[in-house]
Nucleic acid binder design. Structure first.
Lengths: 224, 224
DNA sequence: CTTGACACAGAACAGGCGTTCGAGTATCAT
DNA sequence: ATGATACTCGAACGCCTGTTCTGTGTCAAG
C-alpha cells in the first residue's frame, strides 16, 4: 500500500474527515459516529478513524468528548452549522483606504481578528463564504451609499461586477460604494441614496472594482 | 402520586425536556442521550423519556432518528442553536403603516410567515429574542433614516426609549425611524442621516413610541 | 541492516444507548 | 364497580459505539 503524507499539517484524510463531519452535522443536526466517518471517507477500520480524530484534536481542529457517542464537534470559526463567521478586517474611514483583505493571513483561524456571525440563510445560496470579509465603517463618509457610522459591510472579493450589483470602486483615488451599471457607451455608478446623482464614466475609464457588497448590517441597541 | 395534566398540549415535562434538549445542544454541540434527558429532568426511567419523546415527535416539536444514539433534534423555528428566527411581518410602505405585530398570532410556529435568521451573537447579549419582529421596507420613504428599499428592520416592542436609541415613532400621523433624545424641556428626534435636521417636540408633546430598532439588514447580491 | 516512527487494518471488549415489555397507579367516564 | 386512558417505573435485550490491542507494511535515520 501507499500512504500519502508523512509531514505535519492536514493530510488528505484529515481534510476529508473534517469536511464530512461538517457536512454530516449540517444535514443531520448531530455529529456522526466513528464508524459513519469511516464508511464515508473510505477508512475501513474504526481505529484508524480514531487515530485521525486524535490528531485533529491535538491540532485543535476538533473537540472530543470521550466515551460519549457522537461526541465530536468542530472547534473554531466553522463550529456553527448555520452561521458563517466573517472576519472584520478593521475599521475603514473616508478616503483612499484599503478595501482588500491581506491574502497572506488566514483570518478564519486567527483569533486576533474580530468577526461577525451571519446566518447562512441570509447569504446567497450559492455563496460558500470562503473569501468573504467585513469592514466596519467609521465616520460619515459613506452616507451617500446609505451606509452609516458603525455599520458593518460584508464584502466579497471581485474585480468585475454585473449590472445592478453594489461594488466598492475606486474613483478619484477614493473608494466608494456604488451600484454598478455598464451601459452602452459608459459606466454609471449610482449612489444607493436615490436623491443623489450618479457618477458617469466614459467607456475608456473603466472603474477599478475592488469587491462586491454582499450585505450591510447595522446594529443598534447594543447596550440594552 | 399526582399527575399534572391529562389534556393535550405541552405539559410540564414536555416543556422541560424541550428546554433541556435545546440547552444541552447549545452547550455541547450534540444532542443528549435519552438517559441524560431523564437525569436532568427528574425522570428515572428511560422508557418514560422515550414516551414523551414520542409524543413530542407526534406534535411535530422534535424529530427523531430511531436506532441512532442522540438522534434527537428540535424542529421548526428554534431548531438552530446559534441563530434566531425572526418573523417578517410583511412589507411596510410609506405613511401611516402599522408597525406593531399582532399579538394574537404566534408567528414562530406559523409557517405562513416569512422570517429571517439572525445570528444570536449579533443581538445584544441580554436579548432573548422573544418579541422580536422584522419589517421589510418598501420604497424610499425612509432614506432619511438611512434605511433603503428592501432593507429588513428588526424591531423590538417598546413604548419608551432611552436616549440614543433608534425608535419607531409616530409623528404627524406617520411612522418614522429616528434616534430618540429626551432633553431638558423637549424631545429631539434625530434622523440617522447626519445631514438632516432633527424634529423638535415640546415636552408636552411626548411622541408615541412604537418599538426600538434592534438591527437593520441590507442584502445585496442575492442572485449571484 | 536494524530500529523506530508512522499509517493502516481487523478483531475483540466493554460500556453506552435506544427499545421493548411487564406491571403498577391515578383519574375519569360508563 | 369497571374499563379506558394517561402516566410512571424498573429491568432486560441487543445493537451501537468508543476504546484498545495485535499485527503488517513503509520509509527515513542510525
Amino acid at each position: 500500500m501507499m500512504m500519502v503524507r508523512k509531514s505535519k499539517g492536514l493530510g488528505e484524510r484529515h481534510q476529508k474527515i473534517l469536511d464530512f463531519v461538517l457536512t454530516y452535522q449540517r444535514e443531520n443536526r448531530y455529529p456522526p459516529s466513528i464508524r459513519e466517518i469511516g464508511e464515508k471517507t473510505g477508512i475501513t477500520s474504526t481505529s484508524v478513524v480514531n487515530y485521525y480524530l486524535d490528531q485533529l484534536e491535538k491540532m485543535g481542529k476538533i473537540e472530543r468528548d470521550r466515551k460519549i457517542s457522537r461526541g465530536v464537534r468542530i472547534s473554531g470559526a466553522s463550529a456553527s452549522i448555520d452561521t458563517l463567521r466573517i472576519p472584520v478586517l478593521g475599521p475603514i474611514a473616508a478616503g483612499p483606504f484599503m478595501l482588500v483583505p491581506d491574502p497572506g493571513i488566514n483570518y478564519m483561524n486567527d483569533k486576533e481578528y474580530d468577526a461577525v456571525d451571519v446566518a447562512r440563510s441570509l447569504l446567497p445560496s450559492k455563496e460558500k463564504g470562503d473569501g468573504l470579509y467585513a469592514l466596519e465603517v467609521k465616520g460619515d463618509s459613506m452616507i451617500d451609499a446609505m451606509v452609516n457610522d458603525g455599520d458593518i459591510v460584508v464584502m466579497k472579493p471581485a474585480i468585475e461586477a454585473r449590472n445592478g450589483e453594489m461594488v466598492a470602486v475606486r474613483v478619484n483615488d477614493e473608494y466608494t460604494l456604488k451600484y454598478f451599471y455598464k451601459e452602452k457607451d459608459r459606466y454609471r455608478l449610482q449612489p444607493a441614496n436615490p436623491t443623489m446623482e450618479p457618477i458617469i464614466l466614459k467607456k475608456s475609464e473603466q472603474p477599478e472594482i475592488n469587491g462586491k457588497v454582499v450585505m450591510v448590517i447595522r446594529r443598534l441597541d447594543r447596550a440594552s
